[in-house]
Design a protein around this nucleic acid. Structure first.
Lengths: 123, 123
DNA sequence: CAGGATCCAATAAGATACTG
DNA sequence: CAGTATCTTATTGGATCCTG
């Protein structure tokens, strides 16, 4: 489980995996992926499903996901226009590993909350 | 796999799991956890193992991890003083799920790189 | 409906200097 | 060695207005 693999010490992109992990650790990326995991959705549908994302961030994050090949974008030539976003096979392949992390978070949430309270109490 | 669970719509802390996931998705948190996964380490040892972290961020991230109960801190009363950080059982419990994500990243790195190149070429 | 463009505030984080 | 404190910059992200 090497995080640095070959090239160590360079300021950016030292470890290729970290470039991917940075996306995963993006505030909105994975939330959108998990939202799209239930099926394809349109732009404003996604806004409703993730109430606290701004339009700017939704646009930007969707484009990034598209660039990474995680999400595909299909335009329907209706009026008003409608655009559908859906996970690609690559996007779908991350659902399971990320689901494990969510499960972990759910499971240990009480423990963490308790640890925080105690730590803050001590200070 | 509910990301929003009970309370939807509030600006912060809508979903308790997201509070935990935000920590996971911190730029340095998980990198430090995975570094500590190989065994307990001292402060400056961690600096060397994660070359591009600043001293400020190392201190801050370690404290956050400690607060969350992921890492324990033990001071040895030597001179000069030495402080050892190690994963708690809680911290160790996240190694596996996070390892799955790293494995995913490693596996799909070429695909993602290719998608990016193609996307940028098209634009 | 699905964005693009712009402006501005908040936050994160690097650099630097100092301490028990 | 293992930090603390402060300053400053870079980045993020929200609010707002506009368009095919």
């Amino acid at each position: 489980m090497k995080l640095w693999s070959a090239n160590v010490g360079q300021p950016v992109g030292m470890c290729p995996v970290r470039g991917v992990l940075d996306k995963i650790s993006d505030k909105w990326s994975m939330l959108l992926v998990m939202t799209l995991a239930t099926g394809p959705k349109r732009f404003n549908q996604l806004r409703r499903d993730v109430p606290d994302i701004s339009q700017k961030m939704l646009t930007q994050t969707l484009r990034d996901l598209q660039r990474d090949g995680m999400v595909s974008r299909q335009v329907f030539d209706t009026k008003p226009p409608s655009v559908e976003y859906r996970l690609t096979p690559l996007g779908e392949s991350i659902i399971l590993p990320f689901g494990h992390l969510i499960a972990w978070a759910n499971e240990h949430l009480p423990t963490i909350d308790q640890a925080r309270t105690e730590f803050d109490k001590a200070a």
